[in-house]
Design a binder for these strands. Structure first.
Lengths: 235, 235
DNA sequence: CCTTCAAGTTGAACATGTTCATATTGACGG
DNA sequence: CCGTCAATATGAACATGTTCAACTTGAAGG
């Protein structure tokens, strides 16, 4: 994973280090002061580089958020890896994965609000539906594919094809709720997670009932349509 | 509606006019150049007032968006009023209401993306969940209460209590999809509306089935919980 | 050791949202 | 008609994201 072909010769040593230092400074400042209050000049200052240098490595402040995503995702993976290795019950896996997410993000709760501002902007590079974020998006969706497929739940193929995407959307919904959640210990969010994950798994079971067959087919067709749409035309 | 008690004596004549002129200029420029590309200086310029004057009437650029909301909501109301007066079938009412929404917003499709950026920010005054937007939010939710209650559908009381809020959330989801929709004539969105409104009405019917009783109770409890949460702690 | 050149680095300059001290207006009491 | 005062109006000044042309570094080739 660290041995790429010989394409960017020097770009590594010095540059790689500067990039890391800058991102690390940004991360600290985001936590200390929040996203909006963190100036690009302040980031450069703490990193010990010039303002221009910061822009050499991160095309915009939002690109720092993109890197922030990747970072959080790695932390998230590390947090829930043990659980995913051991647990096989779908409800437990899902609950653990989402709980792990908000726990991982907890240190950045205060920041998350202003960050979401950029995130929702369709023309921003950090928009989860946009092309720039495709790599990290596919990785996250892949995580939920793993949550699903390595469980012992028997999921019909047509549902299984769309479920990871749906769980990814669900995760974003939870995160948006979490942003607004000021309850002590973020208990409201945790409770919401417990209840919704249970509900999701239960509905998956019910989806086989004859009365629901029609709705299930239609919901899946809808999801497929939406997913295709995102491909073709990203602003 | 125009005869308020004697509280703001002079504030009306000249001020009211300036405010309207500024907003109208902003509206034009948003359409012509998009939200981000529209400068507060440009707005002031076209309105024929100074930069400072604009800030006298609108505390920030985002407050112009708040006014924009109100304006769109009024247009929306006017658009669907005839339908709501005549039609009684819930599916048709809902479909018409949501279709009317995207049709009303159509002239601002290009702008909507960058506007949503501010909208999603929890600390922004235009955040739909925030306190500043409460008035307009309640109005919009009220619209969906009317869509529901003046139909001939028989909706259980517990569902009816939460449905308007859910439909309001649903409407926002549709709008977010619409923002990304570049299909000719925005057909993808219209189709999505047709299918989802049908699905919603069908699910409302199914909610009475014994097998779904449990899930229904839990979903409603969840929604109630979420709604309460938004009250207490708005960032 | 010198040349070369791409990668890295720099800070001044620019655009734009926002603030603020100051000036102008115009209705109203006298 | 005059003085008063709140509402209204103004533009300079400020902060900050972003751009850019110029400068520095250091490894590779000779």
């Amino acid at each position: 994973m660290n041995t790429l072909p010989v394409v960017q010769p020097q770009r590594t040593k010095r540059g790689e280090n500067s990039r890391a230092v800058i991102f690390s400074a940004a991360l600290e400042l985001f936590q200390e002061r929040g996203y909006d209050a963190t100036t690009m000049r302040a980031i450069a200052g703490r990193a010990g580089v010039s303002l221009g240098s910061s822009y050499h490595y991160f095309a915009s402040k939002e690109h720092l958020v993109l890197e922030f995503y990747r970072h959080m995702h790695e932390l998230h993976l590390a947090t829930i890896a043990p659980l995913l290795g051991r647990e096989r019950d779908l409800a437990a896996r899902l609950r653990g994965a989402i709980r792990g997410l908000v726990v991982t993000c907890e240190p950045f709760h205060a920041v998350a609000g202003s960050i979401f501002s950029s995130v929702a902007n369709p023309s921003s590079p950090v928009n989860p539906f946009g092309p720039t974020a495709k790599t990290i998006r596919d990785e996250v969706i892949g995580l939920y594919a793993e949550v699903m497929s390595d469980s012992d739940a028997k999921i019909p193929a047509d549902v299984a094809a769309e479920l990871p995407l749906l769980l990814w959307l669900y995760q974003m919904g939870i995160l948006y709720f979490w942003i607004f959640d000021n309850s002590p210990g973020r208990l409201r969010t945790l409770e919401l997670i417990d209840q919704t994950t249970d509900l999701i798994v239960r509905l998956l079971g019910l989806a086989n009932l004859p009365v629901l067959r029609g709705s299930r087919r239609r919901v899946l067709a809808l999801v497929r349509g939406i997913a295709e749409g995102s491909h073709g035309s990203t602003a």
